[in-house]
Structure formats: structure tokens, C-alpha cells
Computed example of a mutant assay.
Amino acid sequence: MTMGSTARQAPEELVTVIITTSPTPSAPSTELLEQIAASFRVHCAPLIHCRAIVVLDTYDHISTKPRLKKGHVTPDGAAKYADYKVNAKRLILKEYSPAGRPYGNTDLIKTQEKAEFGSGAAAYASQDNAVVMNVTTTKDGRVTFVEPLQRLGFGLAVRSALRMTVTPYVWIQQHDWALVTDIPLGSLLQIMQENKALAGTTAEAKEMNNEILSEAIRPPVAYVCFPSIRMMEYATSDHVMLYPALRGLTQLHKQNFTVQSETEEGGSNISTVPLTPLFLWHDKPHLASTSHYLNQVFYSRIAIQRGAFIEDTVGHLARDEMKKGSWKKWACWLYYPDEGKHLCLRHLKGRTWRGVEAELAAKLEYMRLNGLDVNVQVPN
């Protein structure tokens, strides 16, 4: 199926990059975020020119042993994270500033918002189920920082950022996943615009539905994830092949979308984008429709608990429905170059990675304790 070649908005005008970050062993270093920004520049340059919302999540408890997934940090970790937030904001303002014009303090506007959440847990029974967030935005609206006074967790962090988003699409980016291959962002957006997920019974939706019925195969595309090592050759993996409904949906909808675009010389260019149906709403980096996200995943304040992950909660609900054949309402796809043999993401392991210097120092200490020859030095 070939997409039209009418004039379209640039990706930078259509997408907001939502970056979530939280305490890590590498703090106060911003090496994780630096690697992500570098991977954007190399493999998907428009992402570094989009609007950006950065959620600088916090911790719940200070304890003697760090348990980052549970929101526990040590006193030293808390102090380092305070410095990290300062460093991270400085880095993002530099990376996302207009060319030749760095942001200054007078460019920043400060407000407060609330993040409501749902929970049946007794631990939250005495609370009003809302977290106050300090929000700092540049006057041009290009960069927003969200700093909650209590820990949000990934799911509530994404929901909070989505509610501040003004673009029709979002790129969700955790702080420890880097791109390792080129991403055709413009083509993916064109496919998503031409194959919108339907919602409600509005006249526009009905008209769109009639158009879709006139096509032999025109399934909605509202979410596109990118393959990590565990998602290689996904279409033929046990995640799909063990379930008749998922096998059938893959056979029916897996395809190369053909995109037609205009060249600078006024001609046209034809390219193909391989996609296969995906049967889980993953948390790792993905491109999605803002409205679809809010309507389908965060349909109300009770959709996500504080501290919860989308993949572990709503994601598995979605998978259960997909196993029964209800996949189009979620409209999830996986970018699938080279029949799933092409890796797109590298995990930087933010919960354990301590930064270049600390990792090298630990390696040298291990070698020393085991009587191995040490011929390298820790960099200055």
C-alpha cells in the first residue's frame, strides 16, 4: 500500500520527545543522557530538534541499601541525585536550545501541576492520590522539566508528560536505551497519519472507517516500538507462534508499508517500512499517537498506580485482549527491518551501570584482587 506524497509537516513539528529519568548509580554524571542524545544525532536527527519534556522523577525512601526499582536510595545516592538533576537540566537545555542561542534563566517559567493516580493499596488510603510537581518550561515551549515532590514511577511520569504535550505524536524515551540503527521517523509518522486508530463514533471516525473498509488491508498504526535483543525475529518467536490468534494477526497484517515522498528537486521518492504486529505495550523507546495513548492506556486517573510500569500493568491487559483477537484497538506494531534480524536498541542498564570511570575502576580492582596484569589506567 502506497502512502500519498502531499506536503507534510516536518517531524520536529509533530513529535514531542518525552524523556524519563530517575536515580541511577552513575549520578551525578549525565553520561546516560549524553549517550542517548548522541544516538539521536547519529540515528534519528529530528528527535534532537523536537520539543522535549523531561521528567526528573524522585525517590520514596532513603535507606541503607539502594533498591532503585522500589524507589529506595542511600543518603549518598540522594545527594548525588540532587546534583544530577542540575546537571541533567543543563545538558538538555544545551542539546535542545535553538541553534546559536543558549537558554538563560530569564527564558524559564515555573509553575506547579498535579499528577493524579489510582490505587487500591492500603498504603495510599490516607493520601489524596495526587503528587505535586514543579514544572519549569522555556518561554518558547520547546523544553519542559517536571520534578515531582514524590516518586511517580514510569507509568505516571509518562501520563503526566502526555497531559502537557501539544503535538499529535510522542517519542517515549527511558534514560538507559540508546539507538543503534537509523530510524525513518518521517516515514513512520506518514504511515501513522494515514492509518489512524479509530476512537468513538464521531462523523470523522465513521468516514475514516468507510475509507478503511474500502481497502483490502489497512490496519491502524498508533504505536511503533523498536527491537531490542529480546525482540529479534519477534514475528516467529514463541511470543507469537504459541497463540493461534496472534499467529493469524501476524500473517494477515505483517507487511512492508510503501511511503511516497517528495524530493528537493520536485520529484518523488519511494521507500518501504517493514512493520509487524506487536502484542504487548512495551515501555522501551517507542513512537505513539498522543491521543491514542491518553484514550487507550490512560483512560482515567485510576488506570495507573503510583510507582507502576505500563508494560507490567496495562501492557499485560492489552496482551490478554490481543490473544482473543482484539488487537486493532491497541494498534501496536514493531519496526521490523531485515525480518527482525536488525537490532535497533541497546540497553545501557541504568540501574547497575556506574559510569565509565567507576566501571573501569571496578574492573581494575577485580584484576588486582585476582592477580591479573593491570596495564590500563583510569581516565582523568
Rank of each mutant, 00 (worst) to 15 (best):
R346I: 06
Q193D: 14
P46F: 11
V224F: 03
T352Q: 00
M1H: 06
P102F: 05
S271L: 02
A288W: 06
T165H: 07
A358T: 06
E13T: 11
R230H: 15
T137A: 12
E12A: 11
H43D: 00
N195V: 00
D320Q: 13
H282K: 05
G186M: 13
L185R: 10
D60S: 09
Y234G: 02
T202M: 03
Q305V: 04
L345I: 11
K70G: 03
K139E: 13
M1E: 09
P11R: 04
E264N: 12
R319G: 02
P184G: 05
R142I: 02
N129G: 02
D128H: 12
G120Y: 03
A361V: 05
H61I: 14
P184K: 05
A37R: 06
D83Q: 14
L246Y: 03
T58C: 04
E12M: 08
Y366N: 07
M133C: 15
P98E: 05
G4Q: 14
L242E: 14
E113K: 14
I172D: 04
S237Q: 14
L213V: 14
E31M: 07
R101C: 10
G141F: 10
E233Q: 15
L345T: 08
K329L: 06
K323S: 15
S5H: 12
Y234I: 03
K349I: 07
V378Q: 10
K94Q: 14
I53Q: 06
L14V: 04
Q251E: 15
L360W: 05
Q377H: 12
T144A: 02
T2F: 14
D176L: 01
F145M: 02
A27W: 04
P11Y: 08
A362K: 11
N295S: 14
G141S: 10
L275A: 00
R368G: 07
